[in-house]
Amino acid sequence: MTGLHARRRRRVNAFRYVVFTVFGLFFLLPLLAMIRFSLEGSTGGSWSLSSWGQIASYAGPPPLLSGVEITLELAVITCLVVLALLVPTVIWVRLRVRWMTRLVEALCLLPLTIPAIVLVVGLAPIYRVIRQQFSLSALQLFWVYAVLALPYAYRALAAGLEGVDVKTLSEAARSLGAGWFTVIWRVIVPNMRQGVLNAMLLTGALVLGEFTIAYLLLYTNLQVTLFYVSRGTPNAGVLFSTSSAALLFAFVLLLILSYVGRARGRQSERSKVSK
């Protein structure tokens, strides 16, 4: 282990560990402070799990549990809507109308260019109609959440479809007598499970953290609930236990994703920079 390369590798590694430590501290410090506060309270000294217990029981105002419930329900509904909308479209475009690929991609990525804060302005009159004609429930947010999730879900699905020979699979299935519905849902989708799973995890994480649209359309989801709790009772311990729980939950979702979503062909030929 002598020579210039070992020396250089040691130098790069030393640099890496310094970077990881410094950034790790920067990222973890606020989170740890939050967790510590949720356990200790502002008085200090006595440690308890009471504010974690309060997640289910905090009476408000506003009541916390309903915000949690609404958000989890929204996450599930949004996932289903996004899949129902996007999966057949992406496959269909690949199969039959390739010339529309650019258009569909552009539309899916458009929400990155039209920020939520802008979208919400135009949505206000539309949601006025939804409130009058359909329902007052905050669950109605799924309509726009599905749009916000499009860029992430599209990329996940497109990547999942990349390794699937859609044309051959569909021709094989069609020649065996399958209809288009069977081709899409029972032949192609099972081959892109990974992409579908990624799309769902990303969509779920997005819904868990959404604040802007819910708040400005005067709906109450988890983040809006937390916002009002903090306005009413700054430093309520439950604020920090719930926030930490939501963050950790999203982190675990994405960590799972990193383990199941890695079987990409490109990764095997990835080259490293080691200078």
């Binding site: 606020p30 402070a33 937390l226 916002f227």
Partner: peptide
């Protein structure tokens, strides 16, 4: 992934 997309309100509390 979490901190870039998810932060929002929570980050303000944390800081």
């Amino acid at each position: 992934g979490v901190l870039a997309q998810f932060g929002g309100v929570t980050l303000a509390f944390a800081f």
